[in-house]
Amino acid sequence: MLGSYDFCGHYEWTFTWLNNRGGPELLSGFWEEAISRDSQLHARELIAQEGIEGMKAYWGYTLAEESPELGFRITVRDGVFRIDMHDCPSKGFLTRNGLEQYPDYCDHCIGWIGPMMRDTGFVIDHEHNHRGQCWWEMRSTDDERSPGAIASLSGGSDVRSRADWDDLETPIDRFCRAHSAAQKESS
């Protein structure tokens, strides 16, 4: 049986299997069709119906379940939903257990969240540093503002204010008003 306790391990292994079989198109199709539209249907319905309130309900529940140590902070302010992830439970599982088949596991999040936000009328600004830390800002597609400066939205919880946010060795991947992993810009 495939289990939930080591889900992140076989999920990450699956990315490489799909990429080897059908290239990035099959993998991005998997994230959109299987994860965004099927597995995470409950998130999609909640956000379609309730917008930012639905994001609060979904991520407030799911991150607390996956990361009981609360290695994250959710901020809702001025029409923006923001997550600062300081200790990603999913990437942390892989790192602790020495599991790395696919070169950028972190892409899977925008791979499924991106299409959901596109379809529900939001855009994403996001960065991840490949070491279990990232930030997200979701705002209405009609809102043309850029992401806030460091600490402007989430204060001292802004993950970018950490001394170890940018170790200058691992590239930081950036996504601006994005909906897919293909829209990546790396530092």
Binding site: G3, S4, Y5, F7, Y11, S39, L41, T62, E65
Partner: peptide, 13 residues
């Protein structure tokens, strides 16, 4: 223990 909602992703895969 694992999070049961991960079974949704296994089934969707």
């Amino acid at each position: 223990q694992g999070a049961a909602d991960f079974y949704f992703a296994i089934n969707a895969t």
